[in-house]
Design a protein around this nucleic acid. Structure first.
Lengths: 214, 214
DNA sequence: TAGATTGTTAATCGATTAACAATC
DNA sequence: TAGATTGTTAATCGATTAACAATC
C-alpha cells in the first residue's frame, strides 16, 4: 500500500462503497473484474475507479483487471477494517438503543462495550447484553478500557460537552448522531450523521421531481 | 424565490445546515447577520454563502445583511419544510423502531403513519402508538393514505424489492437505511443513509490521524 | 451622503474524465 | 506475440473563492 500525502475526502467516501460491491462479487464467486465491468456495476466511471485505487497503489494487473479477493482485502486494510474497535455509546434513548442492538457492528469489528446515561431509570438495565452505566463514570471507563470510538446519541444541547469529555478521556474518533456540528481536537476524528439533514434534502429532491412533472 | 435550471447537490446538502444555524440564531434573539459573521459561525466562506443563497434569490439587503427570520423561512420553503409529509416505515427491527420512536420527525412535519413487517410476532404491536401492520398490505395502505415517503429499514436482501413495491404504490421519496444502493424510477427521490459506510470512513480518518502522531 | 454589505462576474482551484503509453 | 487493461499524464469540467460594481 503506497503512502501518499493527502487523499481527498471524496475518494475516501467512495471506498466503503467499492468494498460493498466487492463483497457482493465475492459472494457470487466472481474472482476478477476490470475497471470497465466494475464501472457498469457501481456507476462510477472506469477512469475514476482506476484513479481512486491508484491513490493507494497499483492493485490491478494490466491486461487482466483486478482480483476481487485481493482488492477487497486492500480496501479493507486502507479503511482500517482489519482490526477491532471498541466503542461506547452515550445516550440510551431510542437511537442509542438501536445502535446497541445492531449486532452488525459487532460482527464487523466494532464492539459496543458500554452505554452511558444520565437518566437513573435507565442505569443498570441491559441492552443486547450491554450494561447501561452512569454517565458520571464515562471518563474512567474509557481510560481503563482503551475505548477507540465514542458514539454520541444525546440531545443537541448535551452533545458538545459529551464530546469534550470523551476526547479528554482519549477516544480516537467520534460518531455523532446529535443534530449539531461538533468540534474536536485535531487528533480526534469526527463523523457526523445528521439524519434530519438527510431527510431535509430528501424533501427538497421530492419537491423538485414533483415540479418537473407539472 | 427565483426558479433556476439545476442547482448542484453540494449546495442542497448545505441548506439544512444553514437552516440549523439560523434556528440557533433565532433562539438567541439575533435578527440580522452578514455573510461575514455567518461565515465565522458556520465555517463556510462568506463568498460561498452569498453564492449559495443567490441560487434561489436575493434574500439579503446591501449594506445590512440577511434577516435571520426571513432567511430561515426562505430556506425552509426551498427545502419544502413548510408542509407535512406522511411516512411509512418498512421493517420493525431496531432501526425501524428507533425511527418510529423518534418523535422529532413528527414535530418537524414528518409523520410516521404506519410500520410494516413480515415477522408475524411483531404484527399488531404498537410502537410509540403507531401500529405495526402486515407487510402484505403495504401497497394498499400507501395508496389509500397518500403516503409521501417510504423508510426502508429492512435487510439489504429485501431492500430493493420493498423499494419497488413502495414506488409502485406511489411514494414520492425513499429514505433508505439498508446497506445497499437502491434504484428508483426517475420520479422518485432517494436518500441513502449508509451508516456502516459512515463508520468505515470514520475508521479511515482515525487511522490517518494516528499515523500522523507517530 | 458615506459606509457597509450584497449580488454577480471573473479567477482559481480541485476533482473528474479522456487519452494513451506501459505492461501483463 | 497480440489483445486487453491497467497506471498515469493531460484536458475538461464544475465548484469554490476572490474581486468589485451595485445599492441599501
Amino acid at each position: 500500500m503506497k503512502r501518499q500525502a493527502k487523499i481527498s475526502n471524496a475518494v475516501i467516501k467512495r471506498l466503503p462503497r467499492y468494498r460493498r460491491y466487492l463483497k457482493e462479487l465475492q459472494k457470487k464467486g466472481v474472482d476478477k473484474i476490470s475497471s470497465n465491468e466494475f464501472s457498469n456495476l457501481i456507476g462510477y466511471t472506469a477512469s475514476q475507479i482506476r484513479q481512486d485505487l491508484n491513490n493507494f497503489g497499483g492493485f490491478g494487473q494490466q491486461g487482466y483487471g483486478y482480483s476481487v479477493d485481493s482488492l477487497y482485502k486492500e480496501i479493507s486494510a486502507i479503511l482500517g477494517l482489519d482490526r477491532q474497535y471498541k466503542m461506547v455509546i452515550v445516550g440510551a434513548g431510542n437511537l442509542g438503543q438501536a445502535i446497541a442492538n445492531h449486532t452488525y457492528y459487532y460482527k464487523a469489528g466494532f464492539v459496543v462495550c458500554g452505554i452511558f446515561e444520565i437518566n437513573p431509570r435507565l442505569i443498570g438495565i441491559r441492552i443486547n447484553d450491554i450494561e447501561v452505566m452512569d454517565y458520571e463514570n464515562v471518563v474512567e471507563y474509557v481510560e481503563e478500557n482503551d475505548i477507540d470510538i465514542g458514539v454520541i446519541c444525546t440531545t443537541k444541547e448535551a452533545a458538545q460537552e459529551v464530546a469534550d469529555k470523551l476526547c479528554f478521556a482519549g477516544v480516537k474518533g467520534l460518531w455523532n448522531f446529535a443534530p449539531v456540528d461538533i468540534e474536536t481536537p485535531n487528533h480526534v476524528a469526527i463523523e457526523n450523521v445528521h439524519l434530519s439533514d438527510s431527510l431535509h434534502s430528501l424533501a427538497y429532491h421530492m419537491n423538485r421531481l414533483n415540479e418537473e412533472k407539472n
